[in-house]
Amino acid sequence: MTPEQIHKLISEGEFPETSSGRELIETHISWVILCDEFVYKIKKPIRYSFLDFYTVERRKHYCDRELELNRRFAPDIYLGVFPVHEVNGKLMIGEHYGTPVDYALKMRKLNPERRLDKLLSQGSITREHIISLAIWIADFHKKSTVIREKDVLDVGVKFNDLATQKPLISAQLGEARARIIDWSVEVSDMFLRKNEALLTERLKAGFFRDCHGDLHSRNIFMLPAPQPFDCLEFNDDYRQIDVLNEVAFLCMDLDAFEKHTLSNLCIQYYNLHFPAMRTAEERDLFVYYKAYRANVRAKVNSLRAGSESDKGKKQRMLAETLKYLNMMEAYLQSLALA
């Protein structure tokens, strides 16, 4: 679908249920339409190096895949995949009139005020919340499919991709920040060379699993029991990772909220219930994974800043880029000094 069709669907299209209003939330890969009780997610017709939603058939495939993967832990939220048709100029979801123009993933709407990032911002998250979340993640990982074949050094390739953002970071944040990228790539390469045998051993030991892949505070509700959602469906490689890499994303996110005590509590209780960090070397690996996750957030915010025309939004994205670059540097410095 096109942006024009999406706005037409929202303003005058037919949905399976009546709703007092419809709100559009746009991400870099999807359109998300919020109704009174349900949410409809439609993938954008885009193609990147790491995903391909370009054809209707591929969007249908990844809607089905997203439904399947998220039903592992959120079956009551992910309800089905429905066709979108255009009949006599009118767009409708769920009706069957010839060939669909697209597909929509239907989800049950949850209370947005119970999302973890909002609760963290309000200071409403307690030790008990984080302990229950850490145990939830550990239990999920225990049941997840073990991955036996994986290029354990591929995380370094993904880490080093931050170098593509050097021109923008240098121009917008200064040459000193751009030099941090060169230094971080060097430290990352050295760390992975030193720990290749450890990563290989972890693969053989079953610590690489089919995880969530995008487990951060905006993808978790506390109702009050933990309810993660929106796992990564478009690229298996990004989801089939070391379990410590997954937990590191959430702990890095807690660090970004300056909730360092909660971050430490999270990995502590996770490790009590699924001992995946057994040695000092694996603790260093966990810190490396936090640096990698900060690296990815810096890159994503830099990419968004580079394409943003609104000056206010651009400055906020650049501020986020700087914050995550500084976090990445601090994590890696702690490894360099270890």
Rank of each mutant, 00 (worst) to 15 (best):
Y269T: 07
F50K: 06
F159I: 02
T55N: 04
Y324L: 07
R72D: 01
F53G: 10
L116T: 05
Y40Q: 07
K323I: 05
K44N: 04
L110Q: 13
A291V: 04
I46R: 05
A256K: 01
E95S: 12
E175F: 09
V39N: 02
R71K: 11
M1P: 01
E282S: 05
N326H: 12
L110R: 13
L105I: 11
A256R: 01
S302M: 00
A171S: 13
H96I: 12
E196H: 09
D255W: 03
D154H: 14
R47I: 11
E308R: 04
P3D: 02
I220G: 09
V39Y: 08
Y324A: 07
I125M: 11
M92I: 08
M277E: 13
V81S: 01
E196Y: 08
N111K: 13
M1A: 03
V185Q: 14
Q268P: 04
Q268T: 13
L244P: 04
G312Y: 06
H7I: 09
Y54C: 13
S19P: 05
V146Q: 09
Y54T: 15
L322Y: 07
R115D: 05
V87P: 03
Y324V: 07
I93H: 12
P226H: 00
A178R: 00
L162H: 05
A336H: 10
A298Y: 01
